[in-house]
Simulated scan of single mutants.
Amino acid sequence: MTEQVQIFQPSGSLDATKSQAFRQEITGFVENGTKIVLVDLKNVTFMDSSGLGALVLAFKTLRAANSKLVLCSINEQIRILFELTGMDKVFEVFSDRDEFQKSLMTKIK
C-alpha cells in the first residue's frame, strides 16, 4: 500500500543550489503514488526565486499526477515573497503540522 501523505522538511536556504534535489524528492513522491505532500518549511531560513520556482514546479507535477502539495510553517520572509508574487493565492498554507492534521481529519470524517 502506498503512503497517502508524505512530509518533506527542507532546511537552510531553498535556492538554486537545493532546488534540483527538491525536485527529485517530489518526483520520488509522485512515483510512489503519494496523494498529499506536506512541505514543512519550519527550518527554511531563506527562499529565493529558484526555490519558489521549485515549489511551483512541484505543485504542477503533483497536480498532474492527481496529487496535492500543501505547505506549513512558513516564516515571515517566505510569507512576504508569496504575497508579492501572488503565490499565497496558489498554495494552501497551514500554520503548522497540527493545523494540517486537523484539516486532514476533518476531511476524512
Score class of each variant (00 low, 15 high):
1 M>Y: 03
1 M>W: 04
2 T>E: 14
2 T>Q: 14
2 T>S: 15
6 Q>P: 01
8 F>N: 09
9 Q>D: 08
10 P>K: 10
11 S>P: 04
12 G>V: 08
13 S>Y: 13
13 S>A: 15
17 T>Y: 11
17 T>W: 07
18 K>N: 06
21 A>D: 15
21 A>E: 14
21 A>Q: 14
22 F>P: 08
23 R>E: 15
24 Q>A: 13
24 Q>V: 10
25 E>M: 13
25 E>D: 13
29 F>C: 12
30 V>W: 04
31 E>F: 05
32 N>S: 15
32 N>V: 03
34 T>Q: 03
34 T>E: 03
37 V>I: 06
37 V>L: 04
39 V>C: 04
40 D>P: 00
41 L>Q: 04
42 K>E: 11
46 F>E: 07
47 M>A: 14
47 M>S: 11
47 M>H: 08
48 D>M: 07
49 S>E: 12
51 G>H: 11
51 G>I: 09
52 L>V: 12
52 L>K: 10
54 A>T: 07
56 V>P: 08
56 V>R: 07
61 T>S: 14
61 T>Q: 13
63 R>S: 12
63 R>P: 04
63 R>I: 01
65 A>S: 12
68 K>W: 00
69 L>N: 03
72 C>A: 03
72 C>N: 01
76 E>K: 14
77 Q>G: 08
77 Q>I: 06
79 R>D: 14
79 R>T: 08
81 L>M: 15
82 F>L: 15
84 L>P: 09
84 L>Q: 14
84 L>C: 15
88 D>L: 04
90 V>Y: 04
91 F>T: 05
92 E>Q: 12
92 E>I: 01
94 F>P: 00
96 D>S: 02
100 F>E: 01
102 K>T: 04
105 M>T: 10
105 M>L: 11
107 K>G: 00
108 I>Q: 14
